[in-house]
Design a protein around this nucleic acid. Structure first.
Length: 562
RNA sequence: CGGGGUGUAGCGCAGUCUGGUAGCGCACUUGGUUCGGGACCAAGGAGUCGCAGGUUCAAAUCCUGUCACCCCGACCA
């Protein structure tokens, strides 16, 4: 229940049951467990490791590693990098400043892209009358199972407890998406072809009552952006759909340093109520696919449901053609799973909350002020440098902490560059540079002026390196497959001793011809948890479907997915 | 919702079988020693043992219920 400042309260109930809680089983024999990311002294580690593990892997800031337990590694990175935490509210996360700053950068860049393509922002209600959701049949079916519903508007104290009273005549659904409420408004705004196209975007939170949640990837409440447009013709609406898909692909590749495949969803994976759904799909480090953005051509389905009608040039009354498209805070999860390593987060420089962290080395009290002053001047000079159309973001970390602690905190948070500055550097007029894309101990001394001059290029080099690394990973784990046997073998995990252990990383993207039906796709999903992620937009050659033996126009992308 | 598991200090865990009213590591505070590095020594602060009932002289420990969280599924951005 939430109380607003006026003392009214809203009571939420959920149509779906809460997810079962399940904790990641702690490996009984694992020394130190996986909580060591908070910093463990080498001595402690050495003691606990013991002779049996003396030749174990090098110490990492995050335990377990990606290889050992990918799902647990992900959660530890989110926490160690200070990106988000679980909250007292089931399935809802608290996005912490470092994580929220990433999101703000995503917002800033995308918002400009939307405006540059002619869109304007607006805001629509959080609450959607139940009857609105009922208007589009496929839409209802798609979302009904995961809606939070407001049924009361007041609380009364009874026996020291607060009890919801004042039942609403019509329940309100907390928006899982806004097609219906926006459609309702569009119907009022559109009378004539002169009112079209209508190009609106909204930055908002939405609620989908999920069974299983994971920070950023799937939470009951999440932040997103939803674009909604109405057009006078199908062609124009399709063009808009593809244009925004292109915007997302551009953003993913050039800002998030994440290679994506643009494609169309099959019938089974389509957005409820859409005529066509397009997406960008990225490969995570565990080789599963993550849908990073979607763009839907809604045809006239929602226009008919909401009554968005207009008179065309000839005076003929017709329904408008609409689109919708969105990306969410899930993008942050995708950045983590694309770039982070066993030492924590790795932020793509273009979206990093801070580009450069200055860590003053002030051991001698008499040197302290001199070092701090020099660092402040350096920070100011760095901020004069431009990168990706903005001043370089610099943080001077003058906290009263040990240098090593600070260094590791910033490694775990994924700041692209660290400068450790002490008296020796000042005397040489140089800076001691650590790069997040290199090993923690690989640091180099660079002249101050040279560093300032090369900073944009250096950040771009890191940005490009991340992209290339992600692309190489995807390429290495994408296989062209022509037989059903190979396909099944590719997606079958190696056996593990413990049936409840996490599934080892295996598989990847499989490119096969496909002529199959919705039913065949469902069967394969049933067998292997593998689905068609998309039918790529890129040109393809015809061939034969390995499942049906029928001809197929082009290869599709199969993968397990988030 | 099916199968498996876990809730004890901010984080990670031990203690539960064999009831006797809490312990370890890291983090935190203070003092000292170190000083281009995820330090060392000492002292200290911090826990209604998830919650609610029950059994008992006595419950973290036994019983019942309940909630939450994680893993494998199903479903999903």
């Amino acid at each position: 229940m939430t109380r607003d400042p006026l003392g009214r309260a809203f009571c939420f109930s959920a149509t779906a049951l809460p997810p079962r809680a399940a904790a990641p089983a702690q490996r009984p024999g694992s020394p130190g467990g996986c909580g060591r990311c908070a910093a463990t002294t080498p001595a402690t580690l050495g003691d606990s490791v013991g002779p049996a593990m003396s030749n174990a892997k090098p110490q990492t800031a995050i335990t377990p590693t990606r290889e050992d337990n990918y799902a647990e590694w992900y959660q530890q990175v989110v926490r160690a990098a200070d990106l988000a935490e679980t909250s007292p509210v089931r399935g809802c996360m608290v996005i912490k400043p470092w994580g929220y700053a990433l999101w703000e950068n995503v917002q800033r860049v995308l918002d400009k892209m939307f405006k540059d393509t002619g869109h304007v922002n607006a805001y629509f209600p959080l609450f959607i009358p139940l009857s609105f959701l009922e208007k589009e049949a496929a839409h209802v079916e798609g979302f009904a199972k995961e809606c939070a519903v407001v049924t009361h508007h007041r609380l009364e104290a009874r026996d020291g407890k607060l009890v919801p009273t004042g039942e609403l005549e019509e329940p309100l659904v907390v928006r899982p998406t806004s097609e219906t409420i926006i459609g309702e408004m569009f119907a009022k705004w559109v009378q004539s072809y002169r009112d079209l196209p209508l190009l609106i975007n909204q930055w908002a939170n939405v609620v989908r009552w999920e069974m299983r949640t994971r920070l950023f990837l799937r939470t009951a409440e999440f932040l997103w952006q939803e674009g909604h447009t109405a057009h006078a013709s199908a062609e124009e609406a399709v063009e808009e759909t593809m244009k925004m898909l292109g915007v997302y692909a551009d953003f993913a590749e050039n800002w998030m340093a994440t290679p994506v495949i643009q494609g169309e969803k099959t019938e089974g994976e389509r957005f409820p109520g859409a005529v066509q759904t397009f997406c960008i799909e990225a490969m995570m480090q565990d080789r599963k696919a993550l849908q990073a953005g979607t763009s839907h051509f809604l045809g006239q389905n929602f226009a008919k449901a909401s009554g968005i009608k207009f008179l065309d040039e000839k005076g003929v009354l017709g329904h408008a053609w609409t689109t919708s498209w969105g990306v969410s805070t899930r993008l942050i999860g995708s950045m983590i799973m694309t770039h982070a390593d066993d030492d924590g987060m790795v932020c793509p420089p273009k979206l990093a909350p801070q580009h450069v962290i200055i860590i003053p080395v002030t051991h001698k009290p008499e040197e302290r002020q001199r070092v701090l002053d020099w660092c402040k001047t350096l920070a100011a000079d760095l901020r004069q440098v431009q990168y990706a159309g903005q001043p370089v973001r610099v943080e001077l970390d003058a906290r009263d902490l040990r240098g090593g602690d600070k260094v590791w905190q910033w490694i775990k948070r994924g700041a692209p560059l660290r400068l450790e500055i002490g008296p020796r550097d000042i005397d040489k007029d140089s800076v001691f540079v650590g790069r997040r894309d290199k090993g923690a101990k690989e640091k180099t001394s660079v002249g101050r002026a040279e560093f300032l001059a090369s900073l944009p290029a250096l950040l771009q080099e890191i940005q490009d390196g991340l992209y290339q690394r992600a692309l190489a990973h995807r390429t290495a784990n994408t296989r062209v497959i022509d037989t059903k046997e190979e396909f099944y073998a590719y997606f079958t995990a190696p056996a593990t001793k413990d049936p409840n252990a996490p599934t080892p990383i295996h598989g990847g993207f499989a490119m096969t011809h496909f002529s199959g039906s919705k039913e065949l796709e469902a069967k394969i999903k049933d067998d292997l948890s593998v689905t068609v992620r998309c039918i790529p937009l890129a040109e393809g050659e015809p061939g034969t479907c390995p499942f049906t033996g029928q001809p197929s126009a082009k290869r599709v992308v199969w993968a397990k997915s988030y």
